[in-house]
């Protein structure tokens, strides 16, 4: 068991089922996604079958079962962004990355996620890359934005 996992389980030492969602959130914050091992580990800890945990985890949009890319792109598909053309934006992103929303590129550089309103409707359409906002994004700017992160990855090295 990894040390991070260990300390999460410690934090919830006497926890009951009502701590399941916060625990899953902590694990995901630590590891970026919910691995099979982590789910099994939590199951043993809470004395709940893994199937039940998957039942809860898959119900919520927040939980991921695949590793995140180095740059995690969230495209807002909220209403304000929709009326300002986020559907086309999503299509262009998917084309340029070669993945669909919810997936990670093969080189592990980018993952794409669709979210509903990130609360910056005045800046619509919005995409957020590792928490950095890009406001009023036009479809022809998508390539440039991706390039910024590709270059950043290169200069920082290692994936």
């Amino acid at each position: 068991m990894s040390r991070a996992m260990d300390s999460i389980l410690k934090k919830y030492r006497r926890a009951g089922i009502d701590s399941l969602i916060p625990m899953l959130q902590d694990v995901q914050a630590e590891q970026g996604y919910l691995s099979k091992d982590a789910v099994a580990e939590i199951g043993r800890h809470l004395k709940v079958p893994a199937s039940k945990i998957y039942g809860v985890a898959t119900f919520y949009n927040q939980f991921r079962f695949e590793k995140l890319g180095r740059y995690h792109i969230q495209i807002c598909r909220g209403t304000a962004c929709h009326v300002k053309g986020s559907a086309t934006l999503q299509k262009v992103l998917e084309q340029q990355l070669g993945v669909k929303a919810g997936q990670t590129t093969r080189d592990g550089l980018f993952s794409l996620e669709v979210v509903a309103c990130i609360g910056a409707c005045g800046l619509a359409p919005v995409i957020s890359v590792n928490g950095e906002f890009h406001a009023s994004v036009k479809q022809e700017e998508v390539g440039k934005i991706l390039d910024v992160y590709r270059r950043r990855a290169e200069s920082e090295g290692g994936v």
């Binding site: 598909r77 909220g78 209403t79 304000a80 509903a116 309103c117 609360g119 910056a120 409707c121």
Partner: peptide, 11 residues
């Protein structure tokens, strides 16, 4: 605040 075009509660 689930309405995908609302942000008053957040603010």
């Amino acid at each position: 605040e689930g309405d995908p075009g609302a942000f008053m509660d957040r603010s």
